[in-house]
Computed example of a mutant assay.
Amino acid sequence: MSMDLNGQRVVITGITGGIGRASAERLLQAGADVIVSARSQDKLDAALAELSGKASGYVLDLLDMDSIAGFFEKVGKFDHLVTPAATSMFAPIADMDFDAARAIIESKQWGQMMTVHHAIKQMSKTGSITLFSGTVTQKPLPGSSMFAAVGAATEASARVWGLELAPLRVNTIVPGIIETPVWSGLMGAEAGAEALNGFASVLPVGRVGTADDIAKAVVFLIDNGFVDGESLVVDGGHRLI
């Protein structure tokens, strides 16, 4: 993939997760100036130390409206927004932890909405916003009702915002099963690896996805100015089985 994003400023809200980091690396390789965030200065400094190119960043708490507003004031004018969110939970409705469920809504839905609300004050009208959902919005997976609900809300909101904010483009990436630290965080290292191996054995492409698979989609949606209001599924054929 050879794309020229020289002169483009891209904000990625979150750099400590696999997809955020891989996206930053791809965008830097394409020549973009990349501004990233983390919830603490230590995590931000560690992430920036591993990136090469025009990378900078600021501390950001996606659950705090004042933190979000202050972040974008520091960023100033920019072109593209990418909002990966690593928070997740799995629980059947009969055993739902409603405090954890509320936290998912606050981080993945309210957090994204507040981010977009403040970001557009600084964004180029010829830029783009890339949001994130998940294929559980289209292929049910037991225990994923909260993740599916907030993902569906994101996809629907993106289409509305694509009209409201035109000509600024708004798209959603819908990842399938991706090998990121989320799995070990949810299940523990051994159980997470076992689950990923199980998915790999049944997916049509014969493997689970990587963070870089999703990062390539991020770069595509930023680069292609004729894609708008799209929910781009990157799932290795998961919906086919």
Rank of each mutant, 00 (worst) to 15 (best):
A49S: 13
L186C: 07
E164F: 06
W183T: 04
A94S: 15
I104N: 06
A55C: 06
V116H: 01
W161E: 02
R239T: 15
G18L: 10
M146N: 04
T13C: 13
L221N: 01
R9N: 06
I93A: 14
M187T: 06
S37M: 11
A86S: 15
S144I: 09
V227D: 07
D95V: 09
D42I: 10
S56Q: 09
S56L: 03
V227G: 04
A152S: 14
M187R: 07
D99P: 15
M96K: 02
I35W: 03
F72C: 05
G225L: 09
I93T: 14
S128Q: 02
T16F: 07
V11M: 06
Q29T: 03
P84R: 00
S231E: 10
G57N: 04
A22V: 06
Y58I: 08
T115E: 07
D45M: 01
S133V: 09
P175C: 00
S40E: 11
I173Y: 01
N197S: 12
L203S: 06
Q112L: 15
K77H: 12
I241S: 03
T154N: 06
G162W: 02
F226N: 07
L240C: 13
L196C: 09
S231N: 13
R169S: 07
K74Y: 13
P92D: 08
P181R: 00
M113W: 08
G14S: 03
K74P: 14
I173T: 03
I35R: 00
L62H: 03
T172Q: 05
A85T: 11
S67R: 01
L232S: 05
L163I: 14
G18D: 14
K54L: 13
T126W: 10
A215K: 00
Q109M: 14
G17F: 09
A149N: 00
G185F: 12
A69N: 08
L186W: 15
E25A: 07
A195M: 12
T16Y: 03
H238E: 09
T137Q: 07
E190M: 07
G31A: 02
F226K: 03
I120P: 12
M65Q: 13
N197F: 05
R207W: 08
Q29V: 02
G185E: 07
S2A: 08
S37Y: 09
K77W: 10
D235R: 01
G111H: 08
G76V: 06
L165F: 05
D45C: 01
I19R: 00
D97K: 04
S40I: 11
G111W: 00
S52N: 05
L63P: 13
V202N: 02
V202R: 11
G76I: 05
A47W: 11
P140W: 08
D95Y: 11
K77N: 14
M113F: 15
G31L: 04
V82Y: 02
A195D: 05
Q29F: 00
G14N: 04
K139P: 15
I129E: 10
H118S: 10
M123Y: 03
D66H: 10
A158Q: 02
V219E: 01
G7V: 12
V174P: 08
V75I: 03
M146I: 15
T172C: 10
I177T: 10
